[in-house]
Design a protein around this nucleic acid. Structure first.
Length: 488
RNA sequence: GCUCCGGUAGUAUAGUCCGGUUAAGUAUGACGGCCUCUCGAGCCGCCGACCCGGGUUCAAAUCCCGGCCGGAGCACCA
């Protein structure tokens, strides 16, 4: 990070608008800010930019959700700020700009103003005296002017090559009787725009390093005019590129829209890339952190794949996840000619035998026993083929029916299965199962059976369903386990 | 249209500022092998890139110019 030595303490900030939950798209700002602050033993602040009670209405629950997500990500801020608490500050600085003659109240219609500004000419309001401007400012405050009637503009160079920076808007009126703010209600009618509020706060809160998306590049240019008027020094700014994830929508508005249309049932719908959804699926915050650090703050746009996140997560989860059998879309396997009853012991984790075993018991009745196997495996069976039921014995496939498979006992030893190159499949004895549903990343639910030892699993545990994938146990009732699929 | 920013393997990243022992490192991915009563992990091998064209130079991914491609901004949003 540039020029860290120039500052006594490095201060970074993350500034979300609490109008929706935060998602993977915010991860870059959060983690980079938090990480750099930590690296230089500085401070990391969170500032809620909740200054649009009309178009981008903040909602109270989102403040809490964002706080929860930050805690989960292990990026707890040192301090919280709310822009909706700071309106008097913005007023004071606006008045200062007005009396300096560096800001004016403009009542030009937007299209008219645009025409003028493109032609690099001043609008009629621009050159009025500061005294007159103050009178207008009073009329904004006391209700004489209505919503959309006037706007405060900060003066810049009218000939600036980029028309977008010329005399940018800083304050506007919002009818908060009609659109009350969730935190301060209808107390204020004049509200700051992004560049004024953000610019003032970054200075006042002592932010030394701004890390944000490159869509804010021109905002820096705009704010620098204001900084010059106040004699302030603009912080170091890093603008990273746009981040996409193949196959996921990182757009807040699309997520909100999908919720409104009822496409998603909740903010943690597995199709979403919200932190809440990732958490529910069993993604570890540390995996997200490593991914973001890996990606860094480059200004180049990037498209990540889920595989990238999964690879990090897999490394984290693999050693801790115990193994269980889960059968999706179960079919019954009938095994004949079993010589005697037997029990199979399968390790909870192949690399950690000390964690213990699960045990499956087969009690044949006149040599016949039944077990559950997945239809996906059965689809690959050929009559006459030998397959091994993991940990138990090998069977020879007979007739394959709609809802069952006939087999006969073939042999006991793993060695024999290896010699025959028999596939190893997982299975569950007929009566040793629980109902289990797995919520997939598509939000589809896969119905199936889990081995009965899953009854002890507590919610929030991450386990691996063998030959299926890692899942997070979402809830565990007496006879029904619900799991969220994480990745294979 | 105007104003910016950027283009290194499938994906992402190092190297670019201060041109040369790196004709390019790393991660992930694909593939093959070993190991393992799943998958994965681990180990070994392998595949794979400097957007294009000029210029400067003894020498360019690295500097300059042009082009092409991608992205962002041009709101009384943040």
């Amino acid at each position: 990070m540039p020029n860290t030595g120039k500052y006594e303490t490095v201060v970074t900030r993350f500034s979300p608008n609490p109008d929706a939950p935060i998602h993977l798209g915010s991860a870059r700002a959060i983690i980079l800010c938090h990480e750099y602050a930590k690296m230089y033993s500085g401070k990391f602040l969170v500032r809620f930019e909740d200054t649009d009670p009309k178009l981008k209405q903040p909602k109270l629950p989102f403040y809490d959700m964002i706080e929860e997500d930050l805690g989960w990500l292990d990026c707890k801020p040192d301090e919280y700020y709310f822009q909706s608490d700071r309106l008097p500050i913005y007023y004071a600085y606006t008045e200062k700009l007005i009396t300096q003659g560096n800001a004016y109240i403009c009542h030009c219609r937007p299209h008219k103003f645009k025409e003028l500004i493109v032609a690099q000419t001043a609008c009629p309001c621009r050159n009025l005296s500061p005294k007159e401007q103050m009178r207008r400012w009073q009329k904004m405050q006391d209700g004489t002017y209505k919503e959309r009637e006037v706007v405060v503009r900060v003066k810049t160079d009218l000939a600036h090559p980029n028309p977008a920076v010329r005399d940018w808007p800083a304050m506007r009126i919002i009818n908060t009787q009609k659109h009350p703010h969730p935190r301060v209600g209808s107390k204020y009618r004049v509200w700051p725009l992004y560049n004024l509020a953000c610019g003032i706060d970054d200075h006042l809160l002592g932010i030394t390093h701004i890390i944000r998306g490159k869509e804010h590049l021109t905002n820096q240019t705009r704010q620098e005019y204001m900084y010059k008027y106040f004699g302030w020094k603009y912080p170091e700014a890093i603008h990273y590129g746009r981040m996409k994830i193949a196959g996921a929508s990182l757009s807040k508005s699309k997520i909100v829209q999908g919720m409104q249309e009822g496409i998603y049932q909740s903010w943690d719908d597995p199709r979403l890339a919200t932190f809440a959804a990732l958490r529910r699926r069993g993604i570890k915050p540390e995996a997200i952190r490593q991914l973001i650090i890996d990606v860094g703050p480059k200004s180049q746009d990037l498209t990540l794949s889920w595989e990238n996140l999964y690879a990090h997560n897999r490394k984290l989860v693999e050693p801790i996840a115990n193994r269980y059998f889960f059968i999706g879309n179960p079919l019954k396997m009938i095994v004949r000619n079993i010589p005697k009853s037997l029990s199979a012991k399968v390790a909870l984790h192949p690399d950690h035998p000390e964690r213990g075993f699960r045990q499956f018991v087969i009690e044949p009745d006149h040599g016949v026993a039944r077990a559950w196997v997945s239809s996906k495996d059965v689809n690959n069976f050929e009559p006459g083929q030998v397959v091994r039921l993991m940990g138990a014995f090998n069977v020879k496939i007979g007739d394959i029916e709609e809802n069952s498979v006939e087999t006969v006992f073939h042999s006991k030893q793993l060695r024999e299965a290896r010699e025959l190159k028999a596939p190893l499949i997982h299975w569950i004895p007929e009566y040793m199962n629980l109902k289990c549903r797995v919520v997939l990343p598509t939000a589809h639910v896969l119905e199936g059976l889990a081995e009965d030892s899953c009854a002890e699993l507590e919610a929030d545990t991450i386990v691996q369903f063998e030959r299926f994938g890692f899942v997070r146990i979402d809830s565990n009732e007496k006879h029904l386990v619900t799991a969220y699929y994480c990745h294979r």
